[in-house]
């Protein structure tokens, strides 16, 4: 009886927006781990340029970031305005003047998946990235380029591909969006621990 009344629930679950895909072969991961091993802590500064098709000039911002496995990604924009965003297991929280002004629960993957992607990239967590992307790389001396191709049709509706470049540490990440826009983030990593 009571059970009977509980069963309506499924349709509630179909309200979600983006996603990931199937695991890949493990050998790429082993190679990539040699190029750049998994980090448990990363911190530094960033410069972001958001290229929108409809704007002649990119939207630029810069600031500091720090990532630890435990506390997630803390993204602090210093220019042009001061603002803070925390992306972790709980979801995304936007903080202004020390107060949470907006939050998105992790169960709503609309934006929280973006935190998984960027956190995995910063941590060089190839194992996790390998579940959602085809990983390929090219080496030029000690410099490397890594290409991430989404394996899920669902993820492809938002992200066309992601490229990472660096030497010893990650220097640049470019996210090509499905509609032709792109986000380029340059990192200056000062502190990292495997």
């Amino acid at each position: 009886m009571i059970r009977a009344l509980h069963l309506l629930t499924l349709s509630l679950l179909l309200m979600t927006l983006s996603s990931f895909a199937q695991p890949r072969a493990e050998q790429d991961v082993t190679v990539l781990n040699k190029i750049l091993a998994k980090q448990s802590q990363v911190a530094g500064t960033f410069e972001q340029a958001k290229h929108l098709a409809i704007l002649p000039m990119p939207i630029r911002s810069s600031g500091e970031f720090s990532f630890t496995e435990l506390s997630g990604l803390n993204w602090t924009v210093l220019k042009p305005v001061h603002s803070q965003m925390v992306l972790d297991d709980q979801g995304i929280r936007q903080i202004q003047e020390g107060k949470v002004v907006w939050a998105l629960d992790a169960s709503q993957p609309a934006a929280s998946h973006i935190s998984t992607i960027i956190a995995s990239v910063l941590a060089a967590d190839w194992q996790t990235l390998n579940k959602h992307f085809d990983l390929s790389h090219t080496l030029t001396g000690t410099r490397w380029d890594i290409n991430l191709q989404p394996t899920s049709q669902v993820l492809l509706t938002a992200v066309k591909r992601i490229t990472l470049t660096g030497e010893q540490v990650l220097e640049k990440m470019t996210l090509f969006e499905a509609n032709g826009d792109s986000t380029v983030i340059q990192f200056d990593i000062r502190n990292s621990q495997p």
Binding site: Q48, K50, L52, I54, I59, S61, G63, W75, V77, P80, V81, S83, Q84, M85, L87, I92, Q94, Q96, V101, W102, A110, A111, I114, S115, I118, A158, V159, L175, E177, N179, D181, T183, I185
Partner: peptide, 24 residues
């Protein structure tokens, strides 16, 4: 205005990949 600050702060963060496409 809080709504402007909120919107800008997202555009200046990695979340711009999510909210940027609907800027118009």
């Amino acid at each position: 205005h809080p709504l402007i600050k909120q919107a800008l702060s997202r555009l200046y963060s990695p979340m711009s990949a999510v909210v940027g496409k609907d800027i118009q």
